[in-house]
């Protein structure tokens, strides 16, 4: 079994036994969206208009809140260094960490978006547009938030620092993501905004994988 598959399988097993890690983002999202709906006074016209942007914000904030689950424990207990010594390069660890983070922390947020859309009475096509745009943005969201996790390193609990590091990088994804969600209603999946969003997401991956590997190497040297 390749090291990449072994690390992701290990992370899945641990996540399945410790719901707290991946449910944290979901709970945050539920609270954020419920409070937002209450704050908007339950006015359905306003809620329908605000639903998509609020769900995008909730996913982004929930991803940032989960930053501590990317790399910090492996860096803290020395597993990152041990993996390197056993022949798993920092680049492989970076790739597997980003994949694990996307699948365990972010996928539940995207997959539950239809549930949260009920709060805002969003139409079927709007929900489809939102989900497809979120899926296109998923690699970029995972790449930038995991990079922030690797940069904050073994200290963990780097919440605010991680937000300061990754928020500027997430802004373009948020802008293109919102645009793609809206464009779906007019031009469907063929809308150019989806290609731009997916391209941005892949670019984020291409930049973040080596940058995360460098951050892991730097944080192991202590």
């Amino acid at each position: 079994m390749s090291a990449l598959v072994k690390i992701i399988t290990r992370d899945f097993v641990r996540a399945a036994r410790s719901a707290g890690s991946w449910a944290y983002g979901l709970v945050f999202m539920a609270i954020f969206l419920s409070l937002s709906a209450i704050a908007l006074d339950g006015d359905m016209t306003v809620l329908r208009q605000m639903g998509v942007p609020l769900i995008w914000l909730a996913v982004t904030f929930a991803a940032l809140m989960s930053v501590d689950h990317a790399f910090s424990e492996d860096l803290r207990d020395g597993t990152t260094g041990q993996l390197w010594l056993s022949g798993v390069s920092y680049l492989s660890q970076s790739t597997s960490g980003i994949l694990s983070f996307a699948l365990i922390q972010l996928c539940p947020l995207v997959l539950t978006a239809p549930l949260w859309s009920l709060l805002f009475d969003l139409s079927g096509p709007t929900v489809w547009g939102l989900i497809i745009a979120l899926l296109c943005a998923l690699p970029g969201l995972a790449a930038f938030t995991a990079l922030a996790g690797a940069l904050t390193g073994p200290r963990g609990k780097g919440g605010f620092l991680a937000i300061f590091i990754s928020a500027p990088m997430l802004v373009p994804i948020l802008i293109f993501g919102m645009a793609a969600s809206d464009a779906f209603l007019m031009r469907g999946i063929a809308a150019v905004e989806f290609r731009a969003l997916f391209g941005l997401s892949l670019l984020a991956l291409a930049v973040s994988i080596p940058a995360t590997a460098a951050a892991l190497a730097a944080n192991t040297d202590r």
Binding site: R10, Q82, L85
Partner: peptide
């Protein structure tokens, strides 16, 4: 180093959840 060295740290790196 990864081709030649193995390191036993003073602290455990046993993984919780496993």
């Amino acid at each position: 180093a990864p081709e030649t060295v193995t390191f036993l740290p003073a602290d455990s790196y046993a993984k919780s959840g496993l």
